[in-house]
C-alpha cells in the first residue's frame, strides 16, 4: 500500500516537474542566448493564467483552448517588449544587471495591472474536469493536473522541435553560438532575438496556464514561481533546453518524494536543501550550459 502511495506522489511530482520545466525553458533560452535575465518571466506566466481564467469566466472557454487565443497576444507582446524595452538596453555595459532591473520593473507593472483590472483574490480554474480523476490500475491521476502536465510536455516538445528542425530555429541557435558569423550569412540578430523573446513569453503563458490547473494563483504568485524557475535553470544549465526540462522533472520528483515521506511544511526545506547539496558538488549545475 505504501509503495503505491509513494509511486503515486512520484508521478504527481513528475507532472508538476514538467510544468516547472516548461516555465524554465523560455527563461533559460533568453538568459543563455541574450544574457537577459527576465525577472518578468513568471509574471507573464501569471498573466497567461489570468487571461485564460478571464476567457473561462466570460465565455466558458476551456483554458487549454484559451491558450491558443492568448498565444498570439503573448507572442507579439513579447516581440514588442524586446524591440522597445530590452533591445535599447542591450548595449549597456552590464546587460545582465540592466536587464534584471528593467524586467523587475515590468514584473511589478504586470502584477499591479492584474490586481487593478482583475482583483488580488486567489483564482482557480473550475472546468468540466475539475475534481475528476483517471484511474489506471491502482493509480489515480487527477485530471486537471494531468491536463496541465500534458500541456507542459507538449509545449516543451514544440519548442525543442522548433529549435532543432526549423530554418528559423536553427538560425536562432546559430546566432547564439556565433553572432558575428550569423550576421555575415544574412541573419538579422535583432529580428531573430525578437522572435526568441516572443516565444519565451508565449511559453511562459502556457506554463502559467498549466500551473493554474494544479495550484491557485494570485497576482503575487509569480514571486514563488520565479524562485522555482531559477532553480530549474541553474540546475539544468543556462541555455540548455533539454537540461532545463530534465531539471524540472527532477525537482518535481524531489518534491513528490519529500511529500510522500515528510509533512507538507518540510517539502520546500527538503527540496531546496537537496538542491544546495547538488550545487555544492556540481556548482555549475547538472548539465552544461549551451544553446
Amino acid at each position: 500500500m505504501t509503495g503505491i502511495l509513494v509511486l503515486q506522489s512520484l508521478i504527481s511530482g513528475l507532472m508538476i516537474g514538467a510544468i516547472y520545466g516548461l516555465l524554465g525553458v523560455g527563461f533559460s533560452l533568453v538568459w543563455g542566448a541574450m544574457k537577459v535575465i527576465n525577472i518578468a518571466h513568471a509574471a507573464f506566466a501569471v498573466l497567461g493564467a489570468y487571461l485564460a481564467y478571464a476567457l473561462l469566466k466570460m465565455f466558458g472557454l476551456d483554458p487549454v483552448l484559451g491558450f491558443f487565443v492568448i498565444l498570439p497576444f503573448l507572442f507579439f507582446g513579447g516581440m514588442v517588449l524586446y524591440r522597445y524595452l530590452i533591445f535599447p538596453v542591450m548595449r549597456a555595459r552590464d546587460i545582465v544587471v540592466s536587464s534584471m532591473v528593467l524586467t523587475f520593473g515590468c514584473a511589478i507593472i504586470i502584477e499591479n495591472l492584474i490586481s487593478l483590472i482583475g482583483s488580488p483574490d486567489p483564482r482557480v480554474f473550475t472546468t468540466r474536469y475539475t475534481g475528476k480523476a483517471l484511474f489506471l490500475g491502482p493509480f489515480a491521476f487527477q485530471l486537471p493536473q494531468t491536463v496541465g502536465a500534458l500541456m507542459a510536455l507538449g509545449g516543451m516538445a514544440v519548442l525543442y522541435i522548433f529549435l532543432k528542425k526549423t530554418h528559423t530555429g536553427k538560425a536562432l541557435r546559430a546566432s547564439w553560438q556565433q553572432p558575428e558569423a550569423a550576421r555575415l550569412y544574412g541573419i538579422n540578430l535583432k529580428r531573430i532575438s525578437m522572435i526568441a523573446f516572443g516565444l519565451a513569453v508565449a511559453s511562459a503563458g502556457l506554463g502559467g496556464i498549466a500551473m493554474g490547473f494544479v495550484y491557485s494563483f494570485d497576482p503575487h504568485t509569480h514571486n514563488l514561481w520565479l524562485i522555482y524557475i531559477f532553480l530549474v535553470v541553474i540546475l539544468g544549465g543556462v541555455g540548455n533546453v533539454l537540461g532545463t526540462a530534465l531539471a524540472g522533472l527532477l525537482i518535481g520528483l524531489l518534491n513528490g518524494l519529500s511529500l510522500a515521506f515528510f509533512p507538507y511544511q518540510w517539502v520546500n526545506v527538503i527540496t531546496f536543501g537537496v538542491l544546495i547539496l547538488i550545487l555544492l558538488v556540481r556548482p555549475s549545475g547538472l548539465f552544461a550550459s549551451e544553446v
Binding site: 530554418h167 536553427k170 538560425a171 541557435r173 546559430a174 553560438q177 556565433q178 558575428e180 558569423a181 550569423a182 555575415l184 550569412y185 544574412g186 541573419i187 549551451e290 544553446v291
Partner: peptide, 25 residues
C-alpha cells in the same frame, strides 16, 4: 561573402546545419 578569421563555425551544430545556415537567405 566572408570566411571569417578563426572560422567562426556554429560549433555545436552539425556540418549539414552549418551549411544550411550558410544558405540562410
Amino acid at each position: 561573402i566572408q570566411v571569417p578569421e578563426g572560422r567562426k563555425l556554429f560549433a555545436r551544430m552539425t556540418v549539414l546545419e552549418n551549411l544550411e545556415m550558410g544558405a540562410y537567405l
